[in-house]
Design a protein around this nucleic acid. Structure first.
Lengths: 101, 101
DNA sequence: CTGATGGTGAACCACGTGGTTAACTGTTGC
DNA sequence: GCAACAGTTAACCACGTGGTTCACCATCAG
């Protein structure tokens, strides 16, 4: 069900969060969101990313720390590479077919 | 602006369409959509995929043929690989740091 | 203890998205 | 020429999503 990951990454705010988290873990309050965005909104985005398996969070004290879950990103990369491989294989086949004639 | 691609792939119907098109071009009318889905709905999805640069279409006669645009898929793959690389590099650095102590 | 900090939950709202039906256009086959 | 076919446009609708505010809880610093 890889479309959940894609949907989660489809929002610019969430994409920015993931890009930030690729540089290392961060608490919810210091995520790179549009300047005047309320905390509940940020939290919602984090929940979505968690739901999609892209992010995992732990609460230590009163701060919730978010970190990137590498495996979900791998799944996305694999899906994409696979489709691309299928398509370019087809293009190659077409190419050699044209050469033979 | 890679989040448009992600958003386009975030819908299961559209994802299925892309997976189909990776096996080769197809007319709008024979795309793998949920059985009772109306044609206008399919067309909308195709438009979204076109807008995101994932698909290109040409109309020959009365049939519009859709084909996968390989480069957009490459962009997606590159973004994903990049983030993943950043994250795993950080993990590696952490690992060697722990070894040194 | 107390106040400030960081996060949560609930209720609410505007708007985009995914879908429909109906009517119409351009092509193709006979 | 006519009927069937493939797509297209327009108008419309239900619902999910992204956002808000307000009230609240838990934790840390002084």
């Amino acid at each position: 069900m890889v479309h959940h990951q894609f949907a989660a990454l489809g929002d610019p705010t969430r994409l920015a969060i993931v890009e930030r988290l690729a540089r290392g873990p961060a608490p919810v309050g210091s995520l790179p969101v549009p300047t005047a965005m309320s905390l509940p909104a940020v939290l919602k985005h984090v929940r979505v990313l968690e739901e999609a398996g892209l992010v995992s969070t732990v609460k230590r004290g009163r701060v919730r720390e978010c970190r990137l879950r590498d495996d979900a990103l791998v799944a996305v990369a694999e899906w994409t590479a696979h489709q691309q491989a299928l398509w370019s294989a087809r293009l190659d086949a077409l190419g050699t077919l044209l050469e033979e004639t």
